[in-house]
């Protein structure tokens, strides 16, 4: 017999709280360490006539981190929803993101303005989600193929998709918009209008997802299915329909994420989504596997840690390694918190 003091009912929210706490900590450290840097900068400005154009590195990275975190959240919320409703860790989700960028690129090449291209990409992403679920995933569920086997199927799909995308797009980098970004200065940080619009789109889209899950009938059904599919089905919810809709949503959100990512990075290629796949997994796991809102918080943590860490790291190319390390450490320090509810034995 083992014995322990329990955190009680609050324990379920632990992942969220720890993620929130880490975000705040990172933000606080950043701000605190930024103050002296800014002060010294002010001091040097006296001598430096062009001082007005200097930005604060730390704050700038924090802003970049938040931007990237929002993009990541948008891209990964579908990953989280699919995991929550079907138990599948979808390794092909990165290609879903790339697909969005590729579809937008195709539309832009065909002469469409960027806005129309983005809409097209979102529709195409949704259609791809629908198609996948119809042709593949619903069939696997019908055949009662375990989530673990389905995960390997998703690996196969990822391998196939990334290479087909390479054949389609070629190996070179592509650009969705050729305009040169102007950057506006706001005190110690600067930001481009394209990025500002991206952030706004992210916030609106994430808000819409939140509204959908909390306030709409279908959203509540989705949450019921992720809590307990058998129970949900017993109460008259059509589980397969909910999952189909989750796939469509997941595909369109990932596509939108892909388009915004391509605008944010100013470039895209066939492996753009694959490159952020592990960051998305890290975000979703940090936020709590299967909690749709966890993806948002986890993504912000991942984005901020990745960008802010470049200020301290010996070489900036280690920033994603830091994220991977952080993920492993979190599981090490507080695995129970991330587990959500413990499964029952016997």
């Amino acid at each position: 017999m083992r014995n322990a003091d329990h955190a009680g009912p609050k324990a379920r929210h632990f992942p969220l709280r720890i993620a929130l706490l880490s975000t705040l900590t990172v933000a606080a450290i950043t701000v605190i360490s930024a103050v002296p840097a800014q002060a010294s900068q002010l001091a040097t400005e006296v001598a430096d006539t062009a001082g007005g154009t200097e930005t604060n590195l730390l704050l700038q990275n924090l802003l970049n981190g938040i931007t990237f975190g929002l993009l990541l959240a948008l891209a990964s919320v579908g990953l989280s929803l699919i995991y929550a409703t079907t138990g599948l860790s979808n390794f092909a989700h990165g290609e879903q993101v790339t697909f969005g960028a590729a579809a937008a690129f195709a539309a832009v090449t065909a002469g469409a303005p960027i806005l129309l291209a983005a809409v097209f990409a979102v529709l195409a992403g949704g259609a791809s989600g629908w198609l996948q679920d119809t042709v593949l995933w619903s069939q696997l569920r019908k055949r009662r193929i375990a989530p673990m086997q389905q995960m390997i199927v998703s690996i196969g799909l990822a391998l196939a998709a990334v290479n087909l995308l390479q054949i389609w797009m070629g190996a070179q980098r592509v650009r969705l918009s050729t305009s040169i970004e102007v950057r506006y200065e706001f005190g110690p940080v600067s930001i481009g209008p394209q990025t500002m619009i991206s952030m706004a789109v992210c916030i609106v889209a994430l808000g819409a997802v939140g509204f959908f899950l909390q306030r709409t009938r279908l959203g509540r059904a989705t949450r019921a299915v992720s809590d307990n599919p058998a129970l949900a089905s017993a109460t008259g919810i059509s589980v397969n329909r909910v999952i189909r809709i989750v796939w469509i949503m997941s595909g369109s959100l990932a596509a939108l994420g892909g388009v915004l990512l391509a605008l944010y990075e100013n470039t895209s290629d066939f492996s753009a989504g694959a490159r952020i796949l592990l960051l998305m997994f890290a975000a979703v796991t940090l936020g709590g596997l299967g909690h749709p809102f966890g993806a948002l918080v986890g993504s912000l943590v991942v984005g901020i840690v990745a960008e802010v860490s470049t200020v301290f790291l010996p070489t900036p190319d280690l920033k994603y390694a830091i994220v991977m390390g952080m993920l492993i450490l979190t599981l090490l320090v507080r695995p129970q918190g991330l587990l959500g509810r413990k499964e029952r034995v016997g």
Partner: peptide
């Protein structure tokens, strides 16, 4: 069943000894 689980350490009790 939960009592069985607790006695055989398959679950963790909030308090108590055995």
């Amino acid at each position: 069943s939960t009592f069985f689980n607790l006695l055989t350490s398959f679950d963790v009790a909030n308090s108590g000894s055995a």
